[in-house]
Nucleic acid binder design. Structure first.
Length: 593
RNA sequence: GGUCCUGUAGAGCAGUUGGAGUGCUCGCCACCCUGUCAAGGUGGAGGUCGCGGGUUCAAGUCCCGUCAGGACCGCCA
């Protein structure tokens, strides 16, 4: 090794020893006769004292250097309590430049972090990764995956890799496609998840599978979505829901214990989907604060206000919301319209008198107004927002308003880790066409999800009510992951396909290999998959998963560092066969896609 | 596909109702300085105001378009 010690590990006890360090110049303080260098390596920073001014005169920030010298206690009164190595310094005669650095495109060593343009950070990601926060995030990510592998190993799981070049899946997200040179006109798809392969592994008798797998989805991106992302993917045979949840809890408890130093009490709380929607207006509720939704459908029965003559009427209270200006209150209307609602009706309770005011108040009867504050749990000075209409849509609007209220009002306890299972999801949701008319059923989770035991016989007779054996793990309002017990009987799978309007022929052509496999004694099985990027983002406090991925992409799918995606040459086009025009097949081919 | 925000020196920002020379902090370059740790001091360099068009006597500022980055809606089994 070029160095004998890591800079960040030096302590008072090392005084008197001679060490060779190697790292980067984080900062230089030149006093004319003496120069102090902050030398940074992967372990941290230590102060290097140089008196031979010749050797440091040309040093600049982020030069890569090696320095040999004696570790000494700092002179009386010169210790720096802000540094782990602040008790000591390394006194060297000369410093060797291993490589020079050009002037930097943005500051690496900052006394306070500023928001550097993300595009510049990504173009120079190798410099961005030297910055304190990013360096810590990437290391934390590795700790998380190490803990995961440890727990999986302790519980008898086998890490199995599945193909990245596979077949397009008909349901779900848009696939990324890869042309196949040897078969022009045919394309691989990158997997949206290893879902089908892990079920095949169960048929294969592996019993306990896991993989830290890359997944690919060609959809629009968000702060917590990238075109390629990483899942902890798990599948188990001969298990019931309780077994999967118990394993997942073990994994997350260990991660938080080892990486965050926080002991999460088990078992984690659970909530049904119906309850989550009713109380929080979300299937991934943030339970770190109150302001639960209040259903008022019954309360407003018989009202003459036509807006409230609806399938569902609900409300959410904004504490102190009566103090908002008219402009702020109107702002909520725009906010609601931006997410496709007609508006967000409100009533404010006068801070002095408690009197209900606002445009909606005029439309309500004296009785309805008189009891309103009590019905919704509001006090003088509060505002109440209402949503009326379809139940799910109204609950979701109120749920979004609740989150906004929590954010604006500082009601969220940021120190909490609020884990929560959401269970008993509906098996299907209605699909609507362009006119908003019912157009069939759609699997909420995926079409291999088993109904709960009670719905095993009747799920296809009443798809709108059937519950599935699916579960989501939620943390602080973010979906960490989800899974289900799968259907393992061919006959049940057939009925599930029929319920979502997938004919036997279509099912055969798309999932035939899975259905074939299910002819050979498939074990009962189930599993779960977790978003590793989101998990690490939460535990590090990162604002976006881009900050916990070494080389992420921008919102338009580009990578400013490599310039990907890039045009291809005509030769590549030709060779890849991307322009191949398939011959129209005879009408006899049933599986034509 | 839609809505919104941002784009001014290498970085972070300011720039008023359109009005004479676009400014501040950090960084960069040169020099001074022997105990700093966000070192300090003196001097200096560095700008197609994202790009294109329009309105105007006059545009960093107003309008239209476009590109890039970001947030959100749709989408993401």
């Amino acid at each position: 090794m070029i160095r004998t010690r890591e800079a960040g590990t030096l302590r008072a006890a090392d005084a008197g020893t001679t060490v060779t360090l190697a790292g980067w110049v984080a900062r230089r303080r030149d006093h004319g006769g003496v120069t102090f260098l902050d030398l940074r390596d992967g372990s941290g920073v230590v102060q290097v004292v140089v008196r031979d001014m010749e050797s440091v005169h040309d040093l600049r920030n982020e030069y890569c250097v090696a320095a040999t010298g004696e570790v000494r206690p700092r002179p009386e009164g010169n210790a720096n309590p802000d540094l782990a190595t602040g008790e000591v310094e390394v006194v060297v005669e000369t410093v060797e430049v291993l490589s020079e650095a050009a002037p930097l495109p943005f500051p690496i060593d900052e006394h306070k972090s500023s928001n550097i343009n993300e595009e510049v950070r990504l173009r120079y990601r190798y410099l961005d990764l030297r910055r304190e926060d990013m360096a810590a995030n990437i290391r934390t990510r590795a700790r998380v995956t190490r803990v995961i592998r440890e727990v999986m190993d302790e519980n008898g799981f086998f890490d199995v890799e599945t193909p990245y070049l596979t077949r397009a899946t008909p349901e779900g997200a848009r696939d990324f496609l890869v042309p196949v040179r040897l078969q022009p006109g045919s394309w691989y798809a990158l997997p949206q998840s290893p879902q089908l392969f892990k079920q095949l592994l169960m048929v294969g008798g592996l019993e306990r599978y896991y993989q830290i797998a890359r997944c690919f989805r060609d959809e629009d991106f968000r702060a917590d979505r990238q075109p390629e992302f990483t899942q902890l993917d798990i599948e188990m045979s001969f298990v019931e829901q309780e077994d999967v949840l118990a394993l997942a809890e073990k994994i997350y408890q260990r991660i938080w214990s080892r990486v965050a130093g926080v002991e999460i009490p088990l078992p984690l709380p659970r909530m049904t989907y119906v309850e989550a929607m009713a109380r929080y207006g979300s299937d991934k509720p943030d339970v770190r604060f109150g302001q639960e939704l209040v259903e008022l459908t019954g309360y407003f029965q018989g009202t003459e206000f036509r807006v409230f003559q609806a399938e569902y009427v609900g409300a959410v209270v904004m504490p102190g919301g009566a103090g908002q200006t008219r402009k702020e209150l109107d702002g909520w209307q725009d906010w609601a319209k931006a997410r496709g609602a007609r508006g967000l009706a409100y009533v404010v309770f006068d801070a002095e008198t408690g009197e209900a005011r606002g445009p909606v108040a005029k439309n309500l009867s004296a009785e309805h107004l008189a009891g309103l504050a009590e019905a919704v749990g509001a006090v003088a000075g509060d505002a109440v927002f209402f949503a009326a209409g379809g139940k799910t849509a109204s609950q979701e609007l109120l749920g979004a308003a609740r989150l906004e209220i929590g954010r604006r009002g500082g009601l969220i306890d940021e120190s909490r880790w609020a884990f929560l299972w959401v269970v008993d999801f509906p098996m299907f949701e209605p699909l609507t066409d362009d006119k908003g008319e019912f157009a069939g059923w759609h699997a909420v989770h995926h079409p291999f999800t088993s109904p709960t035991p009670e719905w095993l016989e009747g799920f296809d007779k009443d798809p709108g009510s059937a519950l599935s054996n699916a579960y989501d793990l939620v943390l602080n309002g973010t979906e960490l992951g989800g899974g289900s017990i799968r259907i393992h009987r061919r006959e049940v799978q057939q009925r599930a396909f029929e319920a979502i309007g997938l004919s036997q022929e279509e099912a055969e052509s798309k999932f035939g290999f899975l259905l074939d496999a299910f002819n050979y004694g498939p074990p009962p099985h189930g599993g779960i998959a977790f978003g590793l990027d989101r998990t690490v983002a939460l535990i590090t406090g990162a604002d976006t998963i881009r900050d916990v991925i070494a080389f992420p992409k921008t919102a338009s799918g580009g990578d400013p560092l490599t310039g990907a995606p890039a045009p291809i040459t005509p030769e590549q086009r030709k060779e890849a066969g991307v322009d191949f025009t398939p011959k129209p097949k005879a009408s006899a081919a049933p599986a034509a896609e």
